Amino acid sequence: MDDKTLRQEVLNELEYEPGLDAEHIGVAVERGVVMLSGHVNSYHEKMLTEETVQRVKGVKGIAEEIEVRYPFEKKTADDQIAERAVNVLTWDVRVPEDHIMIKVERGWVTLSGEVDWHYQRLAAADAVRKLGGVVGVNNRVTVKRRASSGDVKRKIEESLKRSAEMEAKAIEVSVSEGRVTLGGHVNAWYERRLAERAAWSAPGVAVVEDHIKVG
């Protein structure tokens, strides 16, 4: 697919996503790499824009420079954001209670602490990023190491084989002390994301390094 066609596909997908107002989002494409610019009304929309573009077949990479501009320059004090973040994490059943620490500085939320599963780490960031006044989230929450490297590697490879959307043989997996390294190649960006998800879903995975090539 040439860059002009891919750009139109990306624009179409952004317009199709009901959670986005794509009017102020700029899109440029060079050799399969999508460059996003402009502004959105919340950090949640900023992340949703990236996720939407990743779904488009032919996207090999994303360079994102989208700004968060709240309507009418509405701003929320850091202490208010912190209080709301504590509440929303307390209410979220996916996040273990009293495992996450929160720091807010100029709208940037930093999460720290330790959890048992990667999905809990993601759930914490997902809950906080939807709060008004948040301009960014720095997720420093770590995952406890619980399984041997051999067990982790086997579980990831089995998960890849079960996926009907990708060719597992094209992906290389190596594991060392909770760190997973992915290599090989896939045909589309979303396949790369599926491989990452499979790696993160294994128990005890603390870090995933994705070196999979697209195309």
Results as ranks from 00 to 15, higher is better:
Asp2Gly: 09
Lys4His: 13
Val10Asn: 06
Leu11Tyr: 03
Glu17Gln: 15
Gly19Ile: 05
Gly19Leu: 12
Asp21Tyr: 07
His24Tyr: 09
Gly26Cys: 06
Gly32Ile: 02
Val34Lys: 02
Glu45Ala: 13
Lys46Gly: 04
Leu48Glu: 11
Glu50Arg: 13
Glu51Ala: 15
Thr52Asp: 05
Arg55Glu: 11
Lys57Asn: 15
Gly58Ser: 03
Ile66Pro: 01
Glu67Met: 03
Glu67His: 06
Lys75Ile: 05
Ala85Gln: 06
Asn87Cys: 04
Val88Pro: 12
Trp91Arg: 15
Asp92Leu: 12
Val93Asn: 13
Val93Trp: 10
Glu97His: 15
Glu97Asn: 11
Asp98Cys: 12
Glu105Pro: 02
Val109Gly: 00
Gly113Arg: 02
Val115Gly: 01
His118Ile: 03
Asp126Val: 12
Asp126Cys: 07
Ala127Leu: 13
Ala127Tyr: 04
Gly132Met: 10
Gly133Val: 11
Thr142Lys: 13
Ser149Met: 11
Arg154Glu: 10
Lys155Phe: 11
Ile156Val: 10
Ile156Met: 12
Glu157Gly: 01
Ala164Phe: 08
Met166Tyr: 06
Met166Gln: 03
Glu167Leu: 05
Lys169Ile: 01
Ala170Asn: 09
Val175Gln: 08
Gly178Asp: 00
Thr181Trp: 02
Asn187Thr: 10
Asn187Tyr: 05
Ala188Gly: 02
Trp189Asp: 00
Tyr190Asn: 07
Glu191Trp: 09
Leu194Trp: 01
Ala198Val: 14
Pro203Asn: 11
Val205Asn: 03
Ala206Lys: 10
Ile212Asn: 00
